[in-house]
Structures are given as C-alpha cells and as structure tokens.
C-alpha cells in the first residue's frame, strides 16, 4: 500500500522561493510570536508571504494575529485564508475551540495531508510555525519538504539552550540548512547564547528584548509591529533576507 500524498508535496511548494521553519528544542520560547511577526514584517515589505501554523496541538498564531474565522476555501485543494496581507492556514480552522489530542503518527498524517492539499501558489516566503521539540513534526518537515530552512529560537536560559543545542547538532548532522539562531526574551547583558551559538558553528542572528508590551498587543498586529520586539526582529529580518 502506497500513500500517494508524499509525491505531490514538493509540487505544491514549487512556487515558494523560501520555506522557513521557525523552530526550537524547547516550548515557550516565543516561536509563534517570532514566526507571526516575521511573516507580518516580510509582508509589509511587499513580499508575498504565507504563514502555516504547524503546531497542531497548541496552535497560537491565530491569537497573535487576532484572527477569528480564517477558514481556508476549498477549490481543487485548500486555498489559504487571507489575513493581514498573509496567506494563512491554521488547524484551528478545523478543530475550532476544541482540544486536539494527537499522537505522533497523527501529527505526521495531518502534516502530510495539509502539505499535500494546501495550494500556496506563488510566495516569496512560507513561514512555518513548528511545534516545540525534536519529534515527529520536525522529522517530517525535514523528510517531506525539499529546501526547507530553519530559523531557531532560544531564550537566554541555559535550560532552553540545552535542547536548542541538541536540535542544532541534529540539523547539522542531517545537513539541513539553518538560517541562524535568535535569542528571545533577553532581560540582561550576557554573551552566553551568542558565544555558544557561534561555538557550535551557527550564525547568531541577534537578540530580541523581553518586551512587556508584546502581551498587550496580542491580537492587534498594528500595535505588535510597533513594539521594541518587532522593531528589533524587523532589523534582523532585513539583514537576513534582503
């Protein structure tokens, strides 16, 4: 028995110039915030951008973007919703307010289903908000999506970096391209993360401040883009992608 979905995935993504998976070994480091804000920043620079929330059991990009009903359309496939200048897909459109308890194999199946059926069309960037950790979703996007790049998020904490370091080692071993590492929620001067990232042979992209205004801006993208967090991320994004 052969699963036919795998064979179509790279055709579906064939007109996407850059696919960036925003990932981390650890949860709660701000991946979704970085992914959503990065997508908005690039869209504001007139790029064609897609945002795919691949964190099926704990999706949160819809809350960051203030999206209430972004249901994809069905037309010979899944046509992403248009939200704040982005093509946007989150499983919340299907699971709604319900908990979605999935085991690893289910996550793999749902990922493959959506990658095989979403018609992204022409994009400059597809930003994928990954679930935390080094498990099925990570291994699946590496296996299924040709040319995917990783942007890694950590916090200043050695506890976060311990698993981030393992993720970086794994990506290096698998020869998966890594754009670099951003340090989020920086609260005081420290060279611990930049030094360790460079020592591991990766590019340190910069630090994002712990910005209390971010919490107040959740759901309001105009306010979000004015936070110190977003302004700093915009500088990093322009250095990397322009």
């Amino acid at each position: 028995m052969i699963d036919p979905r795998k064979s179509i995935i790279n055709k579906r993504l064939g007109r996407v110039k850059h696919i960036i998976a925003v990932s981390s070994g650890k949860g709660g480091v701000g991946k979704s915030l970085v992914a959503s804000t990065l997508a908005l920043i690039l869209a504001n620079k007139k790029f064609k951008v897609g945002l795919f929330d691949a964190d099926f059991t704990s999706p949160s990009t819809h809350l960051i973007l203030g999206v209430k009903n972004a249901k994809p359309r069905e037309e010979k496939g899944v046509i992403p919703a248009h939200v704040h200048g982005l093509k946007y897909v989150s499983i919340v459109a299907y699971s709604r307010e319900n908990a979605l308890p999935l085991r690893g194999a289910d996550v793999s199946n749902a990922l493959m289903e959506l990658f095989a059926t979403i018609i992204w069309g022409e994009l400059d960037f597809l930003i994928v908000d990954m679930p935390p950790g080094i498990s099925d979703a990570l291994l699946d996007v590496i296996r299924l999506v040709k040319g995917i790049n990783f942007l890694i998020v950590t916090t200043p904490s050695p506890l976060a970096f311990e698993t981030v370091k393992k993720l970086l080692e794994l990506l290096a071993e698998l020869k998966v391209p890594v754009v670099g590492v951003v340090e989020n929620m920086k609260i005081r001067e420290s060279n611990f993360i930049p030094q360790n990232v460079r020592d591991a042979g990766f590019r340190f992209l910069g630090e994002l401040p712990f910005d209390p205004k971010v919490e107040d801006s959740l759901g309001n993208v105009d306010t979000l883009l004015k936070t110190d967090f977003a302004i700093k991320l915009a500088k990093i994004a322009l250095e990397i992608f322009l």
């Binding site: 299907y94 319900n98 289910d106 996550v107 199946n109 749902a110 959506l114 059926t117």
Partner: peptide, 8 residues
Amino acid sequence: FVPETVHA
C-alpha cells in the same frame, strides 16, 4: 479536510 481532527 484533516481526518486527524476526528480527535476533536
């Protein structure tokens, strides 16, 4: 669309 949402 996504059979795994059966779990919801």
